[in-house]
């Protein structure tokens, strides 16, 4: 067993880059991700275990409450569904193990990958393929939603006014990236 060479990861968007003067499109860093489903009785215990308050308002997200979970986000996806993302590589499955209440936690760290779209034209570029109203009035900083980008499903999170995180399943990420790169060619954006 000693001679086992530990396998090294290969990320789906490795080396991809696109951008213009107004927008940058880059693969997000690898992250731990949890698909979390819970009955109401588990919301408080899970929030405590994960040190991030699971939001209960549609289209909202929450950031970690503890110092070391600042970079952790919980995204409301449905009335009993959250996507928890942690870029520090924390073991989220372990974190919620044994939390009280009835829930389902599934590791989807490698199912999803993410693209960061940033810059003054970020909203316009995503609007090339997303039918939702992404104006700050309708989609504030911190807002998130599962929706569509062109012909693929994505989870959109507005991290800052000019920064969006586009989460998608890994085999759709090349399409999503190419779509955004094509959309940014329009100088109008």
């Amino acid at each position: 067993m000693a001679d086992i060479q530990a396998a090294s990861p290969q990320y789906p968007l490795d080396g991809m880059v696109a951008g213009s003067a107004l927008v940058q499109i880059t693969p997000a860093a690898p992250a731990s991700r949890l698909a979390l489903r819970a009955r109401p009785d588990a919301i408080a215990p899970l929030s405590k275990a994960l040190a991030v308050k699971l939001p209960q308002e549609p289209k909202t997200s929450a950031q970690g409450t503890a110092a070391k979970t600042k970079g952790r986000r919980a995204l409301w996806l449905g009335p009993d569904e959250w996507l928890v993302i942690d870029e520090s590589g924390a073991d989220l499955m372990a974190a919620c193990q044994g939390a009280g209440g009835t829930f389902s936690a599934v590791d989807v760290s490698n199912r999803n990958t993410a693209i960061i779209v940033s810059g003054p034209a970020a909203e316009a570029v995503i609007s090339a393929g997303c039918p939702q109203d992404l104006s700050l009035k309708a989609f504030a900083v911190g807002a998130c939603a599962r929706t569509l980008l062109g012909k693929t499903e994505v989870v959109l999170l507005r991290e800052e006014a000019d920064v969006f995180r586009v989460e998608c399943w890994r085999s759709f990420s090349a399409y999503a990236f190419a779509f955004l790169a094509e959309a940014l060619r329009d100088p109008m954006v």
Binding site: G78, A145, R146
Partner: peptide
């Protein structure tokens, strides 16, 4: 209806 590309409900 199902909000299939949304909340899934």
């Amino acid at each position: 209806w199902r909000h299939v590309h949304g909340c899934g409900r």
